[in-house]
């Protein structure tokens, strides 16, 4: 007895191949599509991923889903550290709402100046794929005041590596490769100043939560001529 399902399968494959033949005849070719995909892959391979990405929100419209999308984009792109800052502590206020997502994805979440255990993040730095640092409004000049106070008790002269070490250990503040500035305020809004030494700045009007918008930012960064004084 002839299998009815096998017949249907054959018919589907036949219709599919006829449609594809018609498409090829009309100019829409899967070969073209494959080539286009390959070209896009090549473009993506030219995109340089920053090891540390910082995001500065200069407007008060920070949404939880946008922050989660940013974290996901960073995970997909292979970013190792994501620092989020705004001068109103709005990002810090989202900590408990983004924590479950971070735990699920194996992302280490910490608030600058607080120990990770305090906010209940189980993932440690060594085991995490991504570290997300929520920078408080007072992470800027005030953190440097604190570092200065601590270093002033030492008998050794203050050095740049010593300041870097203190900022990292006390506030999880390190130097980002790329700063995405969101909003229309043309200022760094008090972002921790010490760490913006040679950071590239990309300004966008809205949070790059979609994959395409995020890739656009990385593409812009990849095209930059980074000379480091030379």
């Amino acid at each position: 007895m002839l299998d009815l399902y096998a017949l249907i399968g054959m018919a589907v494959r036949l219709v599919y191949s006829m449609v594809m033949m018609a498409c090829n005849f009309l100019g829409y070719s899967t070969i073209w599509a494959q080539r286009e995909l390959k070209r896009r892959e090549l473009d993506t391979s030219r995109i340089k991923t920053p090891s540390h990405l910082a995001v500065l929100f200069s407007a008060r419209s920070i949404k939880q889903d946008q922050v989660l999308a940013l974290i996901k984009n960073c995970l997909d792109a292979g970013v190792r550290t994501l620092s989020l800052y705004d001068p109103w502590n709005d990002v810090v206020a989202l900590e408990h709402r983004i924590l479950p997502f971070c735990k699920l994805k194996g992302v280490r979440l910490c608030v600058s100046g607080e120990t990770p255990t305090k906010n209940g993040t189980a993932v440690d730095a060594a085991n995490s794929r991504l570290s997300v640092v929520l920078l408080k409004a007072d992470s800027g000049k005030k953190s440097l005041v604190e570092v200065c106070k601590q270093l002033s008790s030492s008998t050794q002269p203050v050095t740049i590596p010593a300041v870097n070490d203190k900022l990292t250990s006390l506030y999880s503040i390190t130097e980002p490769d790329l700063l995405i500035h969101i909003g229309d305020v043309p200022s760094l809004c008090g972002y921790p100043p010490w760490s913006l030494r040679v950071t590239e700045i990309v300004t966008v009007s809205q949070t790059p939560s979609s994959k395409a918008a995020f890739e656009n930012c990385l593409e812009t960064y990849s095209k930059r001529d980074i000379r480091l004084g030379k």
Partner: peptide
């Protein structure tokens, strides 16, 4: 057209207009 501060007046310009 370069968009970075190149280690210039980082403290002093932490909230000034950057053009």
């Amino acid at each position: 057209g370069e968009l970075r501060l190149s280690d210039f007046l980082l403290w002093q310009c932490s909230n000034c207009h950057v053009y």
